[in-house]
Amino acid sequence: MMTKPVEAAAAPAPAIDVRFGQVGLIQVRIRSTDPGAILDELTGRVASAPLFFQRTGVCLDLTVLGREPQVEEMRPVMDAVRRAGMLPVGLVGESAAMESLSAALELPVLAPFRGQAQAAVPVVQPAERAESGLPALMQHQPVRSGQRVYARSRDLVVTATVGAGAEAIADGCVHVYGSLRGRAVAGARGDTGARVFCQEFRAELVSVAGVFRVFETLPPELAGKPVQAWLDGDDLRFAPLGG
């Protein structure tokens, strides 16, 4: 005789909650349905910030296309987006054909964002600054080899060591009040103003807004010292902190 699961004996907790909530979603504005061009451009985008774009849900905005795409036309577009590493989760469009597209592609039609829909800006909004007002993500335990700590839309403060082979990543700045032996990635979503600070510099790799440097050997003027790193144009600069 099988024993009942523990949950069944306790007060019945609902298996699901249905809530209304908002999530940020990347919009990919489709201006052309040429899958080759889409794949090329998106692959470049994904490569520039793989942590951010890889396997990220995106919404395909068809309002700027200016016409009603056919289902057969949209399938290669979806394939191109998926092959670039993103996952389409919805459609935005105003035309009457959206319903049939939605049914054929098995994607929901989402309400268009009117404020941005007409602006002729790049496909994806780059350089989203970490000005969300969120407090920094605090990490008081060491970040061990193979671990990855990511502070989305905010700074990351680590009050312990970031071990070799570990990754401390933030959309804002990365502060390490300990030894930085692994990788530090600031401005993971392209914020060129983000910086990396650490108490004891022994990093393997430092990146700001996609510009990175690998430290095969540590420069003697930085090794073991408090150091900050920032982006000066396209150059990643490093300097000891304090006097």
Binding site: A164, E204, L205, V214, F215, E216, T217
Partner: peptide
Amino acid sequence: DLIMGCERRVV
């Protein structure tokens, strides 16, 4: 990478 001495060159 450690045994080969290239651990700091892994990107």
